[in-house]
Each structure stands twice: as structure tokens, then as C-alpha cells.
Simulated assay, not measured.
Amino acid sequence: MISNIALLGFAFLMLCAVWYDVRSFTIPNWVPGALLVGWVVAAPFLGLGWMDAGLSFLTGLGVLALGMALWAPGWVGGGDVKLLATGALWFGWPDGLAFVLIAVAAGGVLAVILVIARQIVNMLPISSDVLGATALAQGAPVPYAIAIAAGALLVLPQAQMFAVYTG
């Protein structure tokens, strides 16, 4: 029962991150914080022993370090890095690698979609005031939480932690 709640909570928090990122281009710190606390509480119920928990922690820490290296020059946002790292923590090794790779691929698809959508919107008689606070505005940031959540929700059914849910 607790593992079911934990997995639903994980998915819900990923979707909360999408909601905030689409609306304000930020991911509040409480979302990755809740994911971190949720993992600490849920890990034993998801069948993680000390070795698996350690590998999960190292996976999350490695993704955080890589993300910080991409954040420092301004290539990605800090909220995106924290969300990706806490997602990787939940997935552990090797599912965390699949999560990160699918999230990165989804981010590429999202960027292409936004470039095309922005070009189409420019051809329509829509005021820039209407588009000003949306991802369709020229020069607006990419709400990358969409890609991160897509990666999480696509990998989740095949992940080791989901096996507890179905088992």
C-alpha cells in the first residue's frame, strides 16, 4: 500500500513541476525537496536494500553534478537540474540512466516543437501581449520539466521500483 502511494506521489510531483514550469518557467524548491524526502521515506517500501539505496543516491548525486556543470554556463535552469537529479535518485542505477537519456531526448523533441510552434504563431494575427508570458513567445525559456516528467513517466512502468507495485 505504501509503495503504491509513493509511486503515485512521485508521478504527482513530476506533474506539479510541469504545472509550475509551464505557468512561470520556474520549478519551486519544494517539488524536488518533496521528491527527496519522499524517496527517503519510500525507499524501504520499494524494496531497496542498502546497496540499491546507495546506488540510487550515487546516481542522483552524479546527475546533480553533471546538471550543475550544465547550469553554471546557463545552459539549463537550476530547478530543472534539481528535478532531474531527484528523479534519478528515485530510479537509481541503471534505470536512472534510461530516465536521463529519455528526458534529454524528450527535451530535444520539445525544443523542436516549440521552434515550429513559435514560427506558426508568428504568422497568426495574435498580439504579442497575449503570448508574452507563454512558451510560445519568441525568446521565452523552454519549460523543460515537461521533458523531465515525460522521461519519468515513460521509464516508470519498466523501472525496478515499479516492479514492487505490480508484484
Rank of each mutant, 00 (worst) to 15 (best):
P94R: 04
A117W: 04
V104E: 04
L89S: 10
P28L: 09
L36V: 00
L153N: 04
W39R: 08
A133N: 15
Y20C: 11
A159R: 12
A42D: 02
F91M: 11
A133S: 13
T59V: 11
Y144K: 06
L70F: 14
R118P: 06
V155R: 10
F162Q: 10
Q119Y: 12
A159Q: 11
W30Q: 06
P157Y: 04
A152S: 10
L154T: 00
M14W: 00
L110R: 00
T86C: 09
G108I: 09
V40F: 11
G54V: 11
G33Q: 08
G67I: 07
P157M: 14
M1W: 06
F25M: 13
N29H: 07
M14Y: 08
L61T: 07
A133G: 13
M51P: 04
T26D: 07
M123W: 09
W93F: 15
V81P: 02
A105W: 01
A69G: 12
V63N: 01
F99A: 00
I113G: 09
L13M: 08
G107W: 03
S3G: 10
L84A: 14
I116E: 00
A98L: 14
Q160L: 12
G74F: 06
T134H: 07
G108Q: 12
D80Q: 03
A133Q: 15
A11F: 03
V63D: 04
G79Q: 05
G108R: 12
F45R: 10
G62H: 01
L55M: 15
G77V: 02
W75T: 07
A42M: 11
A6Q: 05
L35C: 03
V81R: 02
F25E: 03
G87S: 13
M68H: 06
S128W: 08
V115Q: 07
D80W: 13
W75S: 01
A149P: 01
A163W: 07
G96K: 05
A135L: 14
A6K: 11
G77K: 07
P28W: 08
R23P: 07
F12V: 15
D95T: 08
G47E: 08
P141R: 13
A65D: 02
L136C: 13
M161P: 04
A163N: 08
G9A: 05
I102Y: 09
L136A: 07
L55V: 07
I113T: 03
S128N: 15
G132A: 15
S24E: 11
L46E: 01
G151K: 09
A137Y: 10
L131K: 10
W39E: 05
V18C: 12
I116G: 09
L110G: 03
N29A: 13
P32N: 08
M14H: 13
G108V: 04
S56A: 14
Q119L: 15
L136N: 07
A85W: 05
G96V: 15
L153Y: 00
M68Y: 14
V112H: 05
L61D: 01
A137V: 11
V155S: 04
A72E: 09
N122T: 12
F57Y: 09
V115H: 03
M68A: 11
P94A: 10
A69P: 06
A53C: 06
V31D: 00
F10T: 06
P73W: 03
A111T: 13
L55H: 06
T134V: 14
Y20S: 15
